[in-house]
């Protein structure tokens, strides 16, 4: 079989990509969301052939996972495989092969680099004295240009390359982009610490002991990593409760 997709069906599948995590679960992970995003394309391909549709849907509700922004590469490629009439086993193996790389690549690029770099930058600008709405607008605007652009690029690459989508992603060298973004993030963390230490209303106003504590807290986070987060939050909440209780007793 070698059908074609209508422009509307592809547009609809792309829009549904934004909802792909809507039924995320511990059993099939993105499986149901992936099938949901496939539906317009499959309808366009199989038309009124209910048997083909049922068979195809059965393949796509199976266990699948990927970073949500990069899942479009798999979606586009699987739509292309379906269009060219690839057999069920080929589609299954393809999905199995791409789900790990699309997850780890996306986590490193987006969650561990793009988002924190821009979050820290927005906080730095806000605390440095930029109007708050401007910091928020800049964060949302810049972040989502990258976000929507990445989703669109991945979907188009998937549709164009089909089962060779992995090679195209490798050529794009997303790892290099990740490293650059992490560099921007580190620069922003430095700027944030500098602003917090120097600005009015920050540690400078709180006094030298608070500055010393802030540096110690920063170093603790740097040394212990994610293990330090929960204890730090518990200590912060505990200190607030304690200081309120002291005030009540007084």
């Amino acid at each position: 079989m070698s059908g074609t997709f209508t422009r509307g069906a592809l547009a609809s599948s792309f829009v549904r990509l934004f909802l792909i995590q809507g039924s995320w679960n511990y059993h099939t992970m993105l499986g149901c969301g992936f099938a949901f995003a496939m539906l317009p394309g499959l309808r366009s391909l199989h038309g009124a052939d209910a048997e083909e549709m049922t068979e195809s849907l059965g393949r796509h509700v199976e266990l699948f996972n990927a970073h949500p922004y990069l899942a479009g590469a798999a979606l586009g490629a699987v739509l292309e495989l379906e269009r060219t009439g690839a057999d069920a086993e080929t589609v299954r193996r393809f999905k199995l092969a791409v789900r790990g790389p699309l997850g780890s690549l996306g986590d490193a690029l987006v969650w561990a680099s793009w988002l924190p770099a821009l979050s820290v930058l927005a906080l730095t600008l806000y605390w440095a004295g930029l109007p708050g709405w401007l910091a928020v607008a800049a964060f949302l605007g810049i972040y989502n240009i990258g976000h929507v652009g990445l989703r669109l690029w991945c979907f188009r690459v998937g549709l164009a390359e089909g089962r060779d989508v992995g090679r195209r992603l490798a050529r794009a060298d997303l790892g290099r982009w990740t490293d650059r973004l992490k560099g921007v993030g580190a620069l922003s963390v430095g700027a944030l610490v500098g602003v917090l230490l120097a600005r009015d209303g920050g540690f400078a106003d709180a006094g030298v002991p608070w500055m010393a504590l802030a540096i110690a807290a920063f170093l603790a986070g740097l040394r212990l990593g994610h293990r330090a987060w929960r204890p730090a939050a518990v200590v912060a909440v505990g200190a607030i409760v304690l200081l309120t209780a002291v005030g009540i007793v007084r």
Binding site: A112, S113, P116, A117, V120, K182, G183, G185, A186, V189, L192, V193, L196, G202, F203, A206, W210, L213, A214, A217, F218, L219, A220, G221, L222, R223, L224, G225, H226, A228, W229, A232, A233, V235, A236
Partner: peptide, 15 residues
């Protein structure tokens, strides 16, 4: 701000 600076340290480690 103190608790938050721990997060900034963790983030630098991640970066």
């Amino acid at each position: 701000l103190l608790g938050g600076t721990v997060s900034a340290g963790i983030l630098l480690r991640d970066l």
